[in-house]
Amino acid sequence: MTRLKLKKLEEYLQCVDGFEKPKLLLEQYPTPPHIAACITHCMQEQYDDIEGKLVADLGSGCGMLSIGATLLGALLTIGFELDDAAVNTFRQNVLDMELPNVDCIRADVLQVPNGKWDKAFDTVVMNPPFGTKHNAGMDMRFLDVGTRLATGAVYSLHKTSTR
């Protein structure tokens, strides 16, 4: 049983602040609340991959997917994000919404060290850079890290043109 109805989840996610000035080179596309709500709800409702799970969000931006996972009852959600402005917005979103058990780390996803993080998470979610701004293959490099960190599923959004 999913703890929140899809509609309610989407309503909450509409309160998540996004990028103030998206940076083109970092491919900071926001994840729209509707899509974030649908996919995180589906992860829980159909696959039982969120509630009570350790969840990582790679390239977490302002935290849309992390917050979706948190609202659906993740045990602990950790966002990894390179950009200073985005991590600050993430953190502010978490404080404003008074969410428990969610953190954001400022880090380069491609620098995430081996060891402690390997298989630390049950589930990995991400809306990675697609690799369309002189960084071809970036999405696949994010996926490689994701599969290293997860013991269960990795959910990732991609662009058909970079397939």
Partner: peptide, 12 residues
């Protein structure tokens, strides 16, 4: 949170 601290390393 200190739960996050538990996982942090400087191995990179």
């Amino acid at each position: 949170k200190l739960s996050t601290y538990n996982f942090l390393t400087s191995m990179a």
